[in-house]
Amino acid sequence: MRGEQIYPSPNRVLITLFLLDAGMGILHLVFIGDPQWGPLFNLAHEENLPTWYSSFQFLLVSGSAGYCYLIEKKNNLGWLVVAACMLGLAIDETLQIHETLIDQIMLGDAGENLRHYFGATQDTDSLLWTVVFAPLIILAGTGLAVFYYSRLRNNRLLFQLSWLPLCLLALSAGLEYLEAKTLSSFAHDSMSRYELFTFIEEMAELIAASLLVWVHCQYATLKRVVKKATP
């Protein structure tokens, strides 16, 4: 009994993370017009509280996937891959690796061709990364979807909730492309639409990460129970 208590309940973890997600959203909305505090809480900015929190969340996703690897004894290499991917995302959130890469790609003729094709302007280069890395994103998304299916298909709810964050991450990537289009457009309300898209996109990303942590924790808990019940 004492041994069980050292594991936090997945539902409690999820509620805590959701509350933190909501807190990030509220701080963003409250301070968006504040020149002093706004940049610290703005979901659209980098190197601020939401970015560090998002990075922390992906670390949790990675850690929980690593824990699943330890719990599961067979066919568990996939969990290590998931853990590595999520660790990569956590590092990327803080170090903005994809932004640096896309800036390099957009420097030359390739960038001019991409901007022309997608109707974007120079100011939105960093938002076009979802287009440039779309093949990788699709492959990673497909891999994750198939892996979660292989591990979680026996539990309908868990399986469905493992795909929901993937859908939210896909939505987030799509919105990032829309943000580039919106900012490049010649419309009097483009800034307000950009802010709306950014808010939805960043919140979708936070919620997706929280759900993934829950899915991993829940899976690990179920596995532990099964292991314990198995003679």
Binding site: A134, P135, I138, L139, T142
Partner: peptide, 20 residues
């Protein structure tokens, strides 16, 4: 599903290489 993902990713990669 895996095959569809691979085909879609390949298609987009080819299209992007043409654009670039």
């Amino acid at each position: 599903v895996s095959l569809a993902g691979i085909i879609l990713a390949s298609f987009i990669a080819i299209k992007l290489s043409f654009i670039i």
